[in-house]
């Protein structure tokens, strides 16, 4: 079996005295889409932040391409080729749409994703390129957030609730763009509240519950009632 692209081992996370993640072991292979599901407060965002370096761990708790990156800062992780599309989009308000995209390429990593390709993926952004980013509609802002992460030409993209608060038709547009994004070999970890959506686009999933992996498996074959139990913590 080939070595995974990224794995965590016994990953823990704390907010002060409150422990949000408990000994998480999970992994993602090259070119794979993995879904992370779980109820509100399960620890999905915390997991993404730990991988991206926004919270610092012990070095061996996150392994990427065989290297221990658990203790790297977020800017160092970015240079390694991991990009996060943060929950709630978090665009830079003082930057235009185009500047938000360009700053995504700050690491200088080479690849197919550049301004023209991002504009091809989301043409509306080209029309609005000189607008301050936070003046766009929610859906368009989400496109900027995704485009900004793509501009880094990452090998692994972390997508945290990209459909949060968006109209169904916009969600459809954004998810329609996903195959084009991963066809180049990029791996993706997707956090999503909408379970069927998450399972439909992924090959494997992890279901978190109160900071622990309650269930993991193949997205296409998993039984719905198994997920409900893991999701809501209903005892058998």
């Amino acid at each position: 079996m080939p070595e995974p692209l990224l794995s965590t081992s016994q990953l823990c996370a704390w907010y002060g005295d409150f422990q949000a993640l408990f000994d998480l072991d999970l992994m993602i292979n090259e070119g794979e889409i993995v879904a992370i599901i779980g109820a509100n407060g399960a620890g999905k965002t915390t997991l993404m932040h730990s991988i991206a370096g926004l919270s610092i761990n012990k070095p061996h708790q996150v392994i990427y391409r065989g290297r221990q990156i658990g203790a790297l800062r977020a800017d160092q992780v970015a240079f390694e080729g991991i990009a996060l599309v943060p929950e709630g989009r978090q665009l830079f308000a003082s930057l235009t749409v185009e500047e938000n995209l360009v700053i995504g390429a700050q690491t200088g990593r080479k690849g197919d994703w550049q301004l023209p390709t991002v504009y091809q993926l989301f043409p509306i952004l080209q029309e609005r390129r000189t607008t301050p980013a936070t003046e766009l509609s929610g859906g368009q802002q989400q496109m900027v957030a995704i485009g900004r992460a793509l501009m880094a030409n990452p090998d692994l993209i972390l997508l945290d609730e990209i459909s949060l608060g968006l109209a169904p038709v916009i969600i459809k547009t954004i998810y329609a763009a996903l195959p084009g994004i991963v066809e180049g070999g990029m791996s993706a970890m997707i956090v999503e509240q909408d379970i069927s959506k998450a399972l439909a686009v992924s090959s494997r999933f992890y279901c978190l519950q109160e900071g622990r992996v309650a269930l993991e498996g193949q997205s296409q074959t998993v039984q719905r009632d198994a997920i409900s139990r893991a999701y809501f913590g209903v005892q058998k």
């Binding site: 800017d75 996060l84 830079f92 930057l95 700053i103 690491t107 880094a152």
Partner: peptide, 24 residues
Amino acid sequence: TALGRAFRAVSDNQDIAQLMGLNK
């Protein structure tokens, strides 16, 4: 300039600026 963009980005949100590869 890229430096000015980095200044504005860090001023807006330090964490997210770090995600872009900027060491604040």
